[in-house]
Design a protein around this nucleic acid. Structure first.
Lengths: 334, 334
DNA sequence: TTGACAATCCAAAACGTTTTCGGTAGTTTA
DNA sequence: TAAACTACCGAAAACGTTTTGGATTGTCAA
């Protein structure tokens, strides 16, 4: 049904070899024949088949964008969307196609992640939203498929990663609170199986340490990065340590949930309790009071991840771990 | 480099024909040979090439997910992400691959949307985030490529769409305000080139009409669906008609911006001005006061769009226009 | 006049599958 | 015992490209 290179060749009165060469800009085709071929091709509405070309060239120009359990991670769109945009933007501008892959789907179809990718001859993968205990973590690390994790510190011959400098980010947030005179600071972290959580925990501890304050386990609670989780965590935190004057949250959404709870129990922000979030998502700016937070450059994370992958693919570069700087954004909640 | 069907055939001592049949579950291959082939294939780590198969079968099992200017539309993630999840979820579970496509990228690469799709032999496309005056609108409508628009009323032999019943949705929001006794109701609509805007405008007018209220052009202003736009629009609205007691926004984000402005100028919500949004995004629930809004079932929109496309692809069904019901979610802003 | 050398072009193989059309045994039926 | 049938398997063509290794001109220098 679709018009092939053979149709063009026939219509232009040349061989398919010549059509191919005309299209790919080789110089051993006469200027008039070239013009004729191009004209005929346009008339016939010829589009070279990407799949035939992939087959003979043995490369698809196609990379996967793997989002762990896309469906269940919908609440994370505040973070994920921009990263996706960054990844796609860079990859597309370099001529790569991006196919969406989700692990759950793969699981449903009883195909492992690596099977999925090699079957479609994906040349590389960018992985996001994954937990450290996810079974696919190991698959990614062991596969010989070039891949780069976002917020996933996997490092091997074929795996690199990009993430924000979370320990410094957490330190920034904490130092800000410490500089405001707070001494009893609660910490609502993300779930323990998120790579960022362990780093942010370290930043929290480090900041306390250098301020000469002993860490109190009662002041630390783990949650799920989402609003409801932050709400519940804050309630728990306040029941355990009613004397805290500030809370540091590992995500803006949890901070929002926390502020909602604080508001409900009549605490004023920042007078009674100061609040710092993490991510600097758009919502942080809209809340009342506007949320002080540690920013992550999400779009850039995607771009850099794409760049690292391209480096591996096109220039055979060794992957590495790239840490983006964090920045403190001070607003009214502190 | 990758192991092919020929390698498996050689290792198993059979022809490639037999390997192919064994893999595709044909019944004319002996039970013992089949077992042997499968064992050998597993040992060699054989994965059939999706691209070779696509070439011979003349179908790719691949559909495009076209997001108009992905990059610039990042602010719309509150709406888009869930739809994407719905689309991907359904499509993936039916064995289709999903390729991300963005028109800007295409434009950069000087390849038209339709070229992009036919080159990759995409079997269909789901289109979202597009404006009515977008040049690609016509391309989509004229192309013989099965496609379904989300919030885009394009209808042809190959084009269907799914959108929320926006005129009824707007009517619901307005009727709610009218039932609370409001008579001077401002309307902050989205930009005029969005399909949903014209429907919501109609719903607004209809509601006024049946309530016997004349529509006042001073009470209507167009904006861009985003927070800052809503803020500016509200300022304009109040300057033109200081006597309004309620505002209906065509998106939750604009409503949020509006509430921010109202708060700043000392108006109480809902006592001085009642506010209704549109979309029921997660943020609507978190704001203070929580936002009354008209809900859209975003995930389902994606699922239904996928279903419609599959219907065309697999059962040659005629596309149509599917309208999802809207629902009013009453919270504290009214 | 002839050999070399551009300038153009083409036939055929290759990429990794699926599928059509047979072919060869062995087994049953008449 | 021959014919028909079953069960299993393979050779080869096809899908739409790219690329290798010439082939055919014509031109120019010797």
């Amino acid at each position: 049904m679709p018009v092939t290179i053979r149709d063009v060749a026939r219509a232009a009165g040349v061989s398919i070899t010549t059509v191919s060469r005309a299209f790919n800009g080789y110089d051993d085709v006469g200027p008039d024949t070239r013009k004729r071929i191009l004209k005929v091709a346009k008339e016939l509405n010829y589009r070279p088949s990407h799949v035939a070309r992939s087959l003979v060239l043995q490369q698809t120009q196609n990379v996967g964008l793997l989002i762990s359990d896309f469906n269940a991670n919908r609440g994370a769109h505040h973070f994920l969307f921009d990263v996706m945009a960054g990844v796609h933007d860079r990859l597309a501008s370099l001529g790569y196609d991006v196919t969406l892959v989700s692990t759950t789907t793969a699981r449903q179809r009883l195909v492992s992640y690596i099977d999925f990718c090699t079957e479609r001859r994906l040349e590389g993968v960018i992985v996001m939203g994954m937990r450290l205990d996810d079974p696919y973590m190991q698959e990614v690390a062991e596969a010989k498929l070039p891949s780069v994790g976002i917020d996933l510190p996997i490092l091997s011959r074929y795996c690199g990663y990009v993430m924000t400098d979370n320990v410094n980010g957490a330190k920034l947030g904490m130092q800000h609170l410490l500089s405001k005179g707070h001494r009893r600071i609660g910490f609502v972290n993300g779930h323990q199986k998120a790579a960022v959580s362990v780093d942010r925990m370290r930043g929290y501890q480090l900041a306390l340490e250098t301020a000469g304050i002993d860490s109190d386990p009662d002041l630390i609670v783990h949650s799920n990065f989402l609003v409801e989780g932050g709400e519940a965590a804050t309630e728990l935190l306040l029941s355990r340590a009613p004397d805290i004057t500030a809370i540091f949250y590992a995500s803006d959404l949890m901070a929002l949930g926390g502020m909602r709870y604080l508001h409900r129990v009549g605490k004023r922000i920042p007078e009674d309790v100061a609040v710092v979030g993490y991510d600097n998502v758009d919502v942080a700016e809209w809340s009342t009071p506007a949320l002080t937070t540690v920013s992550q450059r999400r779009f850039e994370m995607g771009v850099y991840a794409a760049d690292m992958l391209i480096g591996m693919l096109q220039r055979d570069e060794e992957p590495g771990g790239r840490l983006l700087p964090s920045e403190l954004v001070v607003r009214q909640s502190t």
